[in-house]
Design a protein around this nucleic acid. Sequence first.
DNA 1: AAGTAGTTTAGAACGATTTTAAAGTAAAAA
DNA 2: TTTTTACTTTAAAATCGTTCTAAACTACTT
Lengths: 132, 132
Amino acid sequence: MNNKEKLRKAGLRPTKQRMIIADILLDGINRHFTAENLQNEINSSGNSMSIATIYNCLKKFRNCGLIKQVESSKDTAIFDTNINQHHHFLDEETGELIDIENDEVNLHKLPKIPQGYLNNGVEVLIKIKKQV
Amino acid sequence: MNNKEKLRKAGLRPTKQRMIIADILLDGINRHFTAENLQNEINSSGNSMSIATIYNCLKKFRNCGLIKQVESSKDTAIFDTNINQHHHFLDEETGELIDIENDEVNLHKLPKIPQGYLNNGVEVLIKIKKQV
DNA sequence: AAGTAGTTTAGAACGATTTTAAAGTAAAAA
DNA sequence: TTTTTACTTTAAAATCGTTCTAAACTACTT
Ligand SMILES: [Mn+2]
Ligand SMILES: [Mn+2]
Ligand SMILES: [Zn+2]
Ligand SMILES: [Zn+2]
């Protein structure tokens, strides 16, 4: 399925801008990135785009499940092209995230989900720091 | 150990403002809160404090390990008085966090820590959503 | 082709957080 | 105790990521 079809299937009009972003993000290589990172990639690819459009687009892509947003205590939103359930290493010093595939973690015992709620995904974060 | 001693031990001068905050946060009851939540509690206690001081203080407390900051994709920082290693349920709709004690989770299989790094803490986040 | 609903954009606005710089306070030195 | 020093608090301004506004544009439908 090409990117135009992916956008259509997600219910999004394949505009020029969304195609530019899809071509960058949906190339099968997983990455963690900010809106500014993406704008730099867009610029490097010889295109340009308003930051408002980039935010609009990332929000749409996220809400359609084409990308994810990572939980982060940094003040800049971090997005993730790996939409499979997976986990992360986090170097808190640098903010660097490294993917951990789902089958590399095994949760043996899980607490009971609170009354009236459903489990909607489990994420493991392993904080790491550089060895001295 | 009283709060004045706790601050001294953490290397912080026990100023009037830090004592007011310590009296609210270090009462043994665990909570998740924002800077604004804390300012409201300070006001309710008959005191008042500049928001800059509240941020200064929260940063110092966090860096000293008296409180933690939670990983969150919301744009407002969320702090946690539970400084033990523990986990969370997160209702993504409301942002509500519920503590999971460390012994309620058992990680059977963990990936190898990347070369040159040390494990610096594991956090499990269980996203939950209200049952329909 | 014409209509319409959705999209892009520059720039303004917003909200959380940090910075500034001056006044105040706690601890150390005398 | 007084003096000195470094640290802290504050209001206000600045900063920065993100969202909003409203006008121009474009994709899709009729
Ligand atoms: Mn965040
Ligand atoms: Mn912000
Ligand atoms: Zn990832
Ligand atoms: Zn907690």
